[in-house]
Design a protein around this nucleic acid. Structure first.
Lengths: 152, 152
DNA sequence: CGCGACATTGCCGCGTACGTCAAGGTATGG
DNA sequence: CCATACCTTGACGTACGCGGCAATGTCGCG
């Protein structure tokens, strides 16, 4: 039996690690975005590495992809369901049913990829436009410099 | 003298064109993100093509890049200042001063490009991670299929 | 000139994503 | 054993980005 290194952290430490506030983390838990690995004797929340990874994912989806917490909940709920089901059903279920569950999540994952790709494409367009502006400004600078040279 | 085609639209029409609500457009004006080209006799807001382009830019910065309206205000204020200054100072000012103004805005435009590029990079990372997940799921599907074939 | 559609400002309301106390309980070094 | 720092659950407060009235005025077609 493999003893996985199960290091646990308190909420403040986790908050500093991932760049969130303790309040935000509690709020995310309240929304069902995550469930800390354990509680201490005195009911302190205890987080493991998986929790931290999940919080980082949430933060990235929010800050970079701009999803609402509700959207993120939907995006991650699939994963959560799957994890629960896998531990309960792994190798104990009809392969056809398992295949079906995986295939369904595959569809959602592919939709997520398309969402992100779409966002990247629109941002790329904006970069292109902004670069065009930049180019025009460089031309104007060069024009001024040339004029100054002609009549100082 | 060139008569530029100055077609003007009412707020509701503009809202439909750019995919915003009239309420949102008024709010953006209140925040100083834009100033409609004119007002009618009865104080109706009148928008020209430049206003519409600007609203599209605002919408893109909000929906795609995820900037706050305050951020967008900062990003666009430079441009607004420049437009005002240009009409007042174009060809009537010391080239060194004009050069200075353009150079300053160039710096800001380049910063914007870097912001957008950073966002794209982080999104690309997320796409990569999500694609890795997808690949693992495909493997699991293939494994199940192979098992089923072995012992049907 | 009259009527319905659309506009104006002003103001209150609301959902989201937390911040910020308050009133307690807990962990831990000295 | 105690001080102090950190934790808990409420509960209320707040900034942002509008939505949705109300009261009133305007536009434009017949």
């Amino acid at each position: 039996m493999i003893e996985t290194q199960t290091e646990l952290w308190h909420i403040q430490e986790v908050a500093e690690k991932v760049g969130l506030t303790a309040r935000a983390i509690r709020y995310y838990e309240q929304l069902g975005l995550l469930t800390p690995a354990a509680r201490s004797e005195g009911d302190y929340r205890l987080f493991n590495q998986a929790d931290i990874d999940r919080l980082r994912t949430i933060k990235a989806l929010r800050d970079d992809a701009g999803f609402s917490l509700a959207d993120i909940g939907e995006l991650l709920r699939d994963e959560a369901d799957r994890a629960v089901r896998r531990s309960a059903l792994y190798d104990s279920t009809d392969p056809h049913e398992r295949r079906q569950l995986i295939a369904e999540e595959l569809t959602r994952v592919e939709a997520q990829i398309e969402l992100l790709r779409g966002k990247i494409a629109r941002l790329a367009t904006m970069v292109g436009e902004t670069e065009a502006r930049r180019a025009r400004m460089l031309v104007r600078l060069a024009t001024i410099d040339a004029d100054v040279k002609d009549s100082p």
